[in-house]
């Protein structure tokens, strides 16, 4: 794997994976089983995927809970949402200094393998607690946007729509602001909707959703 100076800057030394990955990685196990049937090439691909997963955990957390406030939880996130985001990074529809570099040489199969792996992990508890005020203001703001129509009851998402419940408040806030300010451009409907919210409403929604 090529060196990742930018990644090191943000998240520290890149891990090279290890047994823990296999303990939690049914996708990798299945991939390995499949690849065994395919011979050496398949084994190499499975090992490569393992290495990719290890790289992801550097920022996204070995147990699914990222340390950096701006890094989202991806354990338990829906397969298709994660896959689309990886595709969008690769195609330049979504941009991020670290992620854009990481996905640059990923194949479709690798992106799907990563998305599948993380979708099969349990969503970690953050321990975040919303205040009554967060809930009241956040619920009112989210109702105005009819957010459950896509994110569903409990904000657990489905397929191409991400889970928001229990996501990190700081990441949710940053993401909504990015949509509002059009620094994130890969979901135009989100940009249009969030353009109509002020910063206070966005903070309230982020804290309301993070506490679910």
């Amino acid at each position: 794997m090529a060196s990742r100076p930018a990644i090191s800057r943000l998240c520290g030394t890149v891990s090279r994976g290890g047994p823990a990955i296999f303990r939690s990685g049914r996708a990798v196990g299945l991939l390995l089983a499949g690849f065994l049937l395919l011979g050496q090439g398949g084994l190499a691909a499975a090992a490569e995927l393992e290495e990719r997963i290890a790289l992801c955990t550097t920022c996204h957390g070995a147990a699914g809970l990222p340390e950096d406030s701006q890094v989202p939880i991806i354990w338990g996130q829906h397969f298709y949402y994660t896959y689309v985001q990886l595709k969008d990074y690769k195609a330049g529809r979504r941009q991020h200094e670290i992620m854009s570099e990481i996905v640059a040489d990923l194949s479709k199969e690798e992106m799907q393998g990563l998305a599948q792996h993380f979708s099969e992990q349990a969503w970690p508890a953050t321990g975040f607690r919303s205040s009554d005020r967060d809930v009241a203001q956040g619920e009112t703001a989210a109702s105005a946007g009819q957010c459950v129509q896509c994110h569903l009851g409990g904000y657990e998402g489905n397929s191409r729509v991400p889970r928001l419940a229990g996501q990190k408040a700081s990441y949710l806030e940053r993401t909504m602001l990015d949509f509002k300010q059009k620094t994130r451009k890969n979901a135009p409907a989100k940009s249009s909707l969030l353009a109509s919210y002020d910063a206070a409403a966005i903070v309230a929604m982020a804290r309301y959703l993070a506490g679910m």
């Binding site: 191409r160 890969n186 979901a187 135009p188 409907a189 249009s192 109509s196």
Partner: peptide, 11 residues
Amino acid sequence: GKLWLGGAFKV
């Protein structure tokens, strides 16, 4: 294939 509203509806 993504949501394409050309804007937004707000209650």
